[in-house]
Design a protein around this nucleic acid. Structure first.
Lengths: 183, 183
DNA sequence: AATCGGATGATAATTACTACCAAGTAATCG
DNA sequence: CGATTACTTGGTAGTAATTATCATCCGATT
């Protein structure tokens, strides 16, 4: 299986292109182009660290000393909504435990966060053949398949639910549909 | 690619077996077998929901009204450490953002939580050919490859760092090596 | 330039989780 | 079986990440 770390040069070129189109994309998404948003997307695109909100905050603060941490959180969330950023995992809200310790993967409903086990023996085989990627030593892996569960698929397009931290995975449904499908 | 939801019958049988071996495995792991731990692993194995600590707490409370939520959090963590449970994602501490919205995957250092982008075009192809899994409608996917980064690989075996919530992903290193390699 | 709706900053509130410590109890040994 | 001891637990305070609230501000449109 082809499988390689993305190199720095390519990432930088990509970031430059994305930044150039940013204002245009904001308008298309119905968002105002503010200095804060520009600074935040610039910081995000400049980083290869997959940063947390507070790291972006520290970076942006150097040029915008008055920016609020809340703005950074809000903006990153907004960027995800218009598809200008993504979260590394959609399950960052709280720890979800699994009693099944046999290697397997998960389908996750992007609306209600329902999770079901999936077996993909071939994927396990392919990855366990791989001892390292770049200079990282591989230990294991876990595939998150983003999907709509049968209950949520019927409900039409997401009515942007508010992001009460962990408000819904308990029982209810939550939105922020993040389509990561390949292109 | 073979790819299917794990069915309920199989899961139940697996859970029964695991539960039977639990006491033995605890002792092997140097842990006391307490009623609380038994109740928690039983609740976890009985659930197909990939529950959060609070859901386990609500279940266990019916039989152990005095159990503490802190115990549930601690115990689930402990179970992961001795390999009797796993977390659905190891990145649940806090949101990590990515400016790269082109479909790709991630290598994550299990010690310091460093993340790097990985491209696996074949995986994208295989999954985008798949429109549904069971009754879930597939939108996209994200593979988490668990690994040791070059810096952490040299440092020998993990000295169990304390779990200060988000204490290390900023810069430092954190442990809880969770080997999910196939078998 | 006037208007207006969305955006921001400051801060309070919420949530998930961990730290701490006194008291309880499982495992070991006699 | 009972004493010993170290590991566990419960209760609770504390911490960190994130969201809510709301007055003020400012980008976009006219």
């Amino acid at each position: 299986m082809e499988l390689q770390l993305v190199n720095e040069g390519r990432r930088a070129g990509y970031a430059a292109r994305r930044l150039a189109e940013f204002a245009e994309r904001c308008r298309r998404g119905g968002l105002a182009v503010t200095p804060q948003r520009l600074a935040i997307i610039r910081a995000l695109l400049a980083s290869a660290e997959h940063p947390r909100a507070d790291a972006i905050y520290e970076t942006v603060r150097r040029e915008h000393p008055h920016i609020s941490l809340a703005t950074v959180h809000r903006t990153l969330e907004t960027l995800c909504e218009i598809g200008e950023a993504r979260k590394v995992t959609m399950l960052h809200d709280s720890a979800r435990y699994d009693g099944n310790v046999v290697p397997h993967h998960h389908v996750i409903c992007v609306r209600c966060r329902r999770i079901r086990d999936v077996e993909i023996p071939e994927l396990n085989d392919l990855l366990s053949a791989r001892r390292e990627i770049g200079d990282f030593k591989v230990l294991g892996s876990s595939l998150e398949i983003h999907a709509l569960c049968p209950d949520c698929a019927g409900k039409g397009r997401a009515r942007r639910a508010k992001h009460g931290r962990g408000s819904s995975p308990r029982t209810g449904c939550k939105d922020s549909v993040q389509d990561t499908r390949g292109g």
